[in-house]
Each structure stands twice: as structure tokens, then as C-alpha cells.
Amino acid sequence: MSLVKVEKLGKSYNSQTKVLKDISFEVGSGEFVSIIGPSGAGKSTLLRCINRMVEIDEGKVIFDDLDVGSLNKKELRKMRTNIGMIFQHYNLVPRLSVIENVLHGRLGYKTTLQGVFNKFTEAEKEHAFFLLKKLGIEDHAYKRCDQLSGGQQQRVGIARSLIQEPKIVLCDEPIASLDPNASKVIMDYLKSITMELNITCIVNLHQVEIARNYSDRIIGLSKGGIVFDGPSYRLATDNTDEIYGTKTVETRKLVTV
């Protein structure tokens, strides 16, 4: 059974240009899917349509049998607790401690008053420490987030999304601001999430090689439309040429000259 089903999705921020057009695909539980494509192809927008951080204009997104587009405010909050999100710039509150930032992932389960007065249960705090330990940053729990390295901050981001106990984690270029070593660590953690916890991962990437190595499946996006959708081993040079609108041979020539 599919967890996310996107049907003929269309989106435009203004009347002139359509950012996404006629996008359809399905993603099952525990799948690791990469979305690749050049800057401005609409990868971030597509990801944000799934948890309705941007409004859906045309078509439908079905998540866990819910029509995302038709939910009211309260239902939407409830649905979002099932969807973790990880960002390129980590988006942690820099002045708060690591543990506080991780616990933010529980806010969706709280009433307004519980949340405002910091009422997190002992079980939630223990869960937070458990996750930090798994991610190897337990010793930084009481540090302020702005004192951590990029790779460590992204691991806090992962912990924040996992403490939500999500069914899916959406990652918007999670390694675009990291060096190769930290990138590998983060990608390995994301991979293990899908393998061990059977949580679906949809990852926006712009490194084709990494997408090929880690994902079960790759979706290629170009100018708001899907131009490739298949298992990662089937992605060939022709496909990447179409996605990035380049001719591999010519660019090679340019580089050698």
C-alpha cells in the first residue's frame, strides 16, 4: 500500500509561471526516494506540497489515506506530526540547547498550554536522549545549538524529526551545506532510518552520485515536470542529461579545454 500518493499535482506562486505541472507518483512505506534536478526545478516546492507548507493549487496529495489539500487547520497539525522535515540550513533555534530543540518535535502533540509552559514528559525527555545517543551527539545535549558544527546541527535536526515518531521524513537538500565526510554520516543515518525503523524518506539532492548510491528509487525533476522515475540503477547518462538539460560530452570538452 502506498503511503504518499501525488495525483496530477500543479502549483504556481504567481499567474505567469507554473512551478509544478502534472506531477504524479506514489511512494510506499520504508522506501528511500531521491528527487534530483537543477536549481529552480521545483524540488523544494514539491516536498512542501506533501505536508502542505505551501498550498496545493491543482490535483491531489494523499498521505496515509488523508486528502492533504482538504484538511482543516487542526487536522493539518495532526497530520504534520506524522511527517518529519529536515532542512539544508538545519533551522534550529540557535539560542536554545540541543535537547530543547529536539523536544520541539513533540510540540505537535501538545495542546497550546502544555506547549507554552514547556510541559514535556519524562518519557519524551528520555526518548530525546536516546535519539541523541543513537546519533552520537549525546555529550552536546546541553550546548547551545549555535556552538555545534554543521554536521552535528543536522543530526539535531534528524533527532527533532524522529522524536515526532513520523511515518515519513522529508529532507530538503540535507547535505548541501556540509563537507563530504559529514555528508556521508548524515546520509548513512537517513538510510538507517528507512532500514531499521521502516520510515519513508524523500530526499531532495543535487548530487547524482549520492542519490544513486543511497536511494532505492530516483525521481528526476526538470522545469516542474517529472522526466525520470525509476529504480536508481536504471538512471543513465541520457537521463541526467535530460534532467539537467546538459550534454555530458560537451561539458566534458569544456572542462578539458
Binding site: 493539518l76 504534520r80 534550529l92 520541539h104 513533540r106 497550546t112 506547549g115 535536526g157
Partner: peptide
């Protein structure tokens, strides 16, 4: 955005 995406009010 990060907090909103967790379902925070």
C-alpha cells in the same frame, strides 16, 4: 517553517 512542519501551533 521547521516548527510549523512538526505540527506546532
Amino acid at each position: 517553517e521547521a516548527l510549523r512542519s512538526t505540527g506546532a501551533s
